[in-house]
Design a protein around this nucleic acid. Structure first.
Lengths: 194, 194
DNA sequence: CACCCGCATTGATGTATGATAAGATTTTCA
DNA sequence: TGAAAATCTTATCATACATCAATGCGGGTG
């Protein structure tokens, strides 16, 4: 892509692990920008996830379909959770069980699996960056496990509110409910309490 | 330590990411073996986790204490889940909220944070290995999130049975219940159904 | 051997959340 | 703009799981 990777991407990646000029140059060469309009899909169940994305703006949602219900794996939104992927599909090169779509108009910077592997092979600093990102995502996942394991639905909702105050105004509530592991009706009751 | 890292460790690490002879040599120099007797603690809440461990044999348990209750974060047991740590404490160098203790006599190979960082700096193959391990742990965490989010207690118990058939005979049931996010009474009822 | 004491079980009851159905509200778009 | 669709709420009832209390079991220790 042209020499215009958004500052926010460089800044965030540098925050995970410092990159040299040649590393950033290599990223320039392999990453491309991708805009997705509200409602559009980036990945459908059954496909092998070919790219991983870094979300610049908007809200994306990863969900799984079973028994006629949607199970929201997670949202990508803001700087806390910018890595968009069906991670297991992307990493293991297997069919995804998940769908990924844009809840609002979205802007991403993406890279293909082959290109990322190539960068890992040729740029140790990027390999390290990959490690830092995986460690970060793992720690986020541990927090979520703890929350699901030990907190009530109302507590989980309040946690979500405190972490992403704006999210609740941007996405349909039944998606939020599904993310929390409850029904839309239960979420409605929880919200009424307050 | 002496030149006798267990084959199982080398084999498992190689399975994550291939290591050269010099990498393995470097691991030899920095890793030490550590045995912990049944009931002993490896880490107490409030301490900063100084080492990460690879479990060779036995069962370890990571748990958190709150409101007079024990919340079991996870078990380390067998080859599926060999990395023992309070990961956030170890990675961020902050006080751990978790305790780690041996449920049975345990044997581990451990490495200090400083030594691991040094290996990451000097051996790109080990940095890559770290990435693969983090990615692996992340994928395991995603599975657990899905299970907690969308499955009933009985389903989660059966999952656990199918993944670690022997575990239920080796650890007190109230630990298992806590891991599943339910009370010992509920677990007892689930088991009676079968 | 007998006594604990931690653990597992069982029963009775309470509560949070799910299921179903109906209505109200908002959004979409022809 | 107006009708249809999607979403949100509310109500009722059902169920899974928690809580509380009591009993039983089993292994360690005097």
């Amino acid at each position: 892509m042209d020499h215009s990777l958004p500052d926010i991407l460089i800044k965030q990646l540098n925050h995970f692990s410092p990159l040299g000029d040649t590393d950033i140059e290599a990223l320039y060469d392999r990453m491309t920008s991708l805009d997705i309009a509200k409602g559009e899909y980036w990945l459908r169940e059954g496909q092998v996830s070919s790219h991983i994305g870094f979300l610049i703006s908007g809200v994306m949602r990863v969900y799984h379909l079973a028994n006629d219900k949607e199970y929201t794996s997670y949202f990508n939104f803001g700087q806390r959770n910018p890595f968009v992927s069906s991670f297991t599909s992307f990493t293991k090169r297997i069919a995804s069980q998940e769908n990924i779509h844009a809840i609002t108009d979205c802007s991403m910077i993406v890279i293909s699996h082959a290109d990322l592997e190539h960068l890992y092979e040729t740029h140790p600093a990027i390999d390290r960056l990959g490690r830092k990102m995986a460690e970060y995502n793992y720690m986020l996942a541990l927090e979520r496990i703890y929350s699901l394991q030990h907190r009530s639905a109302a507590e989980r909702y309040n946690e979500l509110l405190s972490i992403y105050p704006q999210l609740v105004n941007m996405v349909p509530h039944h998606y939020i409910a599904s993310y929390l592991g409850i029904t839309p009706e239960s979420l409605s009751r929880i919200r009424k309490e307050k």
